[in-house]
Design a protein around this nucleic acid. Sequence first.
DNA 1: CTTGACCTTGACGTAGCGTCAAGCCCGAGC
DNA 2: GCTCGGGCTTGACGCTACGTCAAGGTCAAG
Lengths: 273, 273
Amino acid sequence: MLSIGEFSRVARVSTRLLRHYDQLGLLKPATVDADTGYRYYGAAQLSRLNRIFVLKELGFELEAIPPLLDDEVDPESLRGLLEERRTRVAETIDREQARLRHIEARIAQLDDAGSLVDDDVIVRSEPARTLFAIRRTVRSFDEAKVILGRVMRAVTTTVSKRNLGQLAVLAHAETFEPDALDLEIGFFVGDPPPPIALDDGWIAPRRVAEVHTMAVCVRTGPPERSHVASARVARFVEARGYRIGAPTREVFVAPFDPARPESAVVEMQFPLR
Amino acid sequence: MLSIGEFSRVARVSTRLLRHYDQLGLLKPATVDADTGYRYYGAAQLSRLNRIFVLKELGFELEAIPPLLDDEVDPESLRGLLEERRTRVAETIDREQARLRHIEARIAQLDDAGSLVDDDVIVRSEPARTLFAIRRTVRSFDEAKVILGRVMRAVTTTVSKRNLGQLAVLAHAETFEPDALDLEIGFFVGDPPPPIALDDGWIAPRRVAEVHTMAVCVRTGPPERSHVASARVARFVEARGYRIGAPTREVFVAPFDPARPESAVVEMQFPLR
DNA sequence: CTTGACCTTGACGTAGCGTCAAGCCCGAGC
DNA sequence: GCTCGGGCTTGACGCTACGTCAAGGTCAAG
């Protein structure tokens, strides 16, 4: 019999670990002195401890190990568990490799520019949603603002407040043509409302599909200043080997006040490929 | 101003996260109602939240982020931090890839043999230690046992108990020759004791170097049964593309009782290349 | 017998929030 | 103006696998 200290030395582990495994029922001492509570381990228990380490190395949680050790799992289930583990570990590797690429892109950027310039661009997924909007091709930002004002008035007086989401503008053109902007102007909504007629078209609901990888950043100020944010995203995207797709979105974070366009806060969203 | 719920919706995060970041000082609400404690966020704060996510994605801990956000870190320090992060992430990837190899080896083994046979073989490093032993070439296990008995008597009567480590036998031959075993028989010790003369040589201390990758498993029974454990390790090693080096070690886990060799518990150690 | 090393249980800390729980607050609709 | 359902507050525990004290009983070499 070995005391916990002796056993911990031959096993190259801490006594704390052995007490922890005792408590979890992973590795009970061969005998415990009833008077003093001293734990005594048999030399042969080292083998079980090694098996525990093998399973831990494979990525199993401690709680999952006792049934595996005590042969209460048939080979097929075990195979399933191992494949589950394989999948999880492969995912972890993918995530960490992406992280590594991000870090290296930032280091390169630091060497290039001396600071982290596009440091508020994140990538996330956007769920499918319902958009209640009108699609028009306009020749200027000012023209767009006029339509935007009309849409706001029409929608806010018609759609109940708790069904109403954010104001959004989708730009459908693959390339940027300042005098022919193919825009969709409206609001995200919960339930699809009935269409509303405007002078020159309909505000109608439609489903916009989920976007899996969407680069997102925040812009402050009127739409004329979009290109500043766009440039940040472009730099970000280029450094990581993506390409920007369409439609891009401008989603208004705070309710838009047409009287003070310079205080607008807009989330610019760029689908990536 | 947006309530915490509104802000959490546009930012696609939980309110719990926002309260957590408030508490940590990462992102304080623009205003807090003094009466009710309600938090209100400015739309422009979304940008700071995004920057937090960028830094988190790079692997920084939340606690490390405020100085980075508030531009209190010069570019060189930042570069150092990023390189530190790169190193850590690369290590993580290496570890996870090794884990993946282990898992796949186990799956293959399960398909081959139907169970995890060499499931108590682990790989670890062994530190440098002092060995107090005699080296002899013997023609049989029995001859080795005789020497082992003599060494045990000589050492246990000479070396103080707290300086005395485990009984160990090192086998130096690269290939296994049953009738010419080049063995080193003795004990690991703390401080090097003075040599002891035996009939046919000296028990002398020497430093054994660190072994970085050592395959280890536990055998129960007399040395004649070594080959069972050796076979387990050989299978393990082969499946992972290593090769066994020399010298291999047999380290006695419990004090060895020569009268009952079948109850011996021995840790078999195989250096890997 | 002493004394220092060893053992015990118990509790807190970790990283980043998720998830209740108990109780006050707000605003949309009547 | 009132109501009621949803929103907000603080506080606390949970998670993973132990590391690290702390206070106090035990063992064994000299």
